[in-house]
Amino acid sequence: MDGVRTRKRHRLSWDVGPPETQAVTDGRVPTAAPPSSPPLREDDREGHYVYDLGENLTPRYKILSKMGEGTFGRVLECWDREKCEPVAIKVVRSIHKYRYAAMIEIDVLNHIATNERGRSCCVQIQHWFDYRNHICIVFEKLGPSLFDLLKRNKYCPFPVDLVRDFGRQLLESVAYIHDLRLVHTDLKPENILLVTSEYVKVPSQKSNLQGGTRFRCLPKSNAIKLIDFGSTAFENQSRSSIVSTRHYRAPEIILGLGWDYPCDLWSIGCILVEFCTGGALFQTHENLEHLAMMERVLGPLPPRMAQKANPSAAKYFTRGAELNWPEGAASRESIRAVGKLGRLKDLVGRNAECWGGSFTDLLRGLLKFEPAERLTAEEALDHAFFQQSGPA
Rank of each mutant, 00 (worst) to 15 (best):
D2S: 13
D2Y: 11
R7M: 11
S13E: 09
D15E: 13
T21K: 10
Q22K: 10
T25A: 08
G27I: 01
G27P: 06
R28V: 13
R28G: 06
P30D: 11
P34D: 08
P35H: 09
P38D: 03
P39S: 10
L40A: 13
E46A: 13
G47K: 03
P59H: 11
Y61S: 05
Y61D: 05
K62N: 08
G70F: 00
L76D: 06
E77H: 04
P86W: 03
V87T: 07
V87H: 07
V87Q: 08
I89C: 09
K90F: 07
H111E: 04
H111P: 00
I112S: 00
T114H: 11
G118H: 02
G118R: 02
C121G: 02
I125Y: 01
R132Q: 15
I137H: 11
E140Y: 08
L146Y: 03
L146H: 02
D148N: 13
L150D: 04
V160R: 01
V163P: 00
D165L: 00
E172N: 12
V174F: 11
A175E: 15
I177T: 03
I177K: 01
H178Y: 07
I192W: 02
V195R: 03
V200W: 02
Q205P: 05
Q205R: 15
K206E: 14
S207H: 11
Q210P: 04
G211C: 07
G212N: 12
R216E: 12
C217P: 03
P219N: 09
K220C: 14
A233C: 14
A233K: 14
F234L: 10
I242P: 03
I242Y: 13
S244W: 06
T245R: 08
R246Q: 05
E252Q: 08
L255M: 14
G258C: 04
D264A: 02
L265Y: 04
C270G: 01
I271F: 00
C276S: 14
G279W: 12
G279S: 11
Q283A: 15
T284M: 07
H285L: 09
N287G: 00
A292F: 01
E295H: 10
R296K: 15
R296D: 04
V297N: 01
G299P: 03
P302I: 01
P303E: 00
A306E: 09
P311Y: 01
A313F: 09
G320D: 14
A329S: 14
I335C: 11
A337K: 07
K345T: 05
D346R: 12
G349M: 08
G349F: 06
N351P: 05
N351H: 14
W355D: 03
G357E: 09
G357P: 06
F359T: 01
F359M: 09
R364H: 14
L366N: 00
A372F: 05
E373K: 14
A380T: 04
H383I: 04
